[in-house]
Design a protein around this nucleic acid. Sequence first.
DNA 1: CCGTCTGTTTGTCGCAGCGCAACTTCTCGA
DNA 2: TCGAGAAGTTGCGCTGCGACAAACAGACGG
Lengths: 232, 232
Amino acid sequence: MSAIDRSLVACLPIFAECSSEQIDDILREARPARFEKNANVFEQGEKAAHFYLLLHGRIRACKLTPAGEEVVIRFIAPGEMFGVAMAIGRDAYPATATAVVDSLVLAWPNSAWPSLLARNPALAVNTMRTLGARLEESQTRVIEMSTEAVERRVAHAILRLVNQAGRKTDDGVLIDFPISRQDIARMTGTTLHTVSRILSAWQTLGLISSGRQKIVVREPHKLYLLAESSEK
Amino acid sequence: MSAIDRSLVACLPIFAECSSEQIDDILREARPARFEKNANVFEQGEKAAHFYLLLHGRIRACKLTPAGEEVVIRFIAPGEMFGVAMAIGRDAYPATATAVVDSLVLAWPNSAWPSLLARNPALAVNTMRTLGARLEESQTRVIEMSTEAVERRVAHAILRLVNQAGRKTDDGVLIDFPISRQDIARMTGTTLHTVSRILSAWQTLGLISSGRQKIVVREPHKLYLLAESSEK
DNA sequence: CCGTCTGTTTGTCGCAGCGCAACTTCTCGA
DNA sequence: TCGAGAAGTTGCGCTGCGACAAACAGACGG
């Protein structure tokens, strides 16, 4: 692990309140691993052997329904922990994690978790916060799915992606990893047909411009209005 | 707090791995409080001052959307912690908690949380498990909302209620607290009209029998088949 | 014992969005 | 350079579910 990564990791929220020595102590037990685009870091149902921190790249967490449909739970950004089955008392991964671009992760063996926790009480506090944040996000999605129309849900999903992975360009804000209409459909509980229609309409209106696996939001503010206001 | 409550609390999962002395130590800082039917324990957005353990009764956790609609997040059973905003680093309650029957709770001041955690490392582990379980439940709901038709969602919701609050009677399994069609609609993201139609149909088929704020599941197995099988 | 209120039932109607299918376009590997 | 497959677009018909409306029943207070 390079010195650059080292100092980058030190300021992550998950390590807040940990001393420099503690962080070194924690990192010593981890090993880096590389996953190329479209490779799975782990699969749903697989026995959990490691937990992970994403250093570079982007990971998609997906769940398979009993009927065989896939639902996108979230996209993981650099700096986030994932695959923390151990922390929540599971012995299998509850979802499949797939690299959507070439990615670099740190992997800890599950067996390291209890001792890390014992030596770093702040880690427990920070992990609870992370879980709490994810719980809130998930509940927000339940509420959206319950009460909002498809077009709004798509708008919210895209704004969330912009917040998480937006990169300014001269045209607007680019979502900085390859994402298909199918992905957005699986995030919003609709079909790729409907997403395609909606995005086409927005493109005509000049709100966005999009291509194959690529979305640029030209007018984030207008999209926000669309997502929030009650008018049609 | 009575001796009966005392021994009841001692075997809760949230206190797993805590010694008897530790539990006494934890309980010493809590105070009991009573809430009568339809009273709010706390409201969404209110500054969080306490966290709670439900001893007896039933609490409904509800979220209000920006548009003013209510969504039922979950029903809290005796033995569950709730209002743990402090643990996840929030300073306001993210939902409204309402007693659906006369209820008895234990309340800790928020200020007690850090020291409790410091003195009882197992509490952190158990809290993470609880949060993890809620996260999975919430994600399951997202998946259901994304992929399943209304009738199935209602079936799942009722089966969940049966698991959580079912009481055997000679007619079948009674959901042991007053619950309206409106509540079920707010759990499944539909309207009370649709819920009413579905329950009426099930009643005709003999799957359930229901009345005002009351549901008895006569044929849990058949309802389960309805919820899981792919056929209509 | 009666009036009122809340929760429930039932019917009709319209439309959003899904399934299906055909077609186009882009990408990538051989 | 070309072919195959993946990703996206678009039209059409059908239906499930929400909106609105109206009546009904059980609970509760006076």
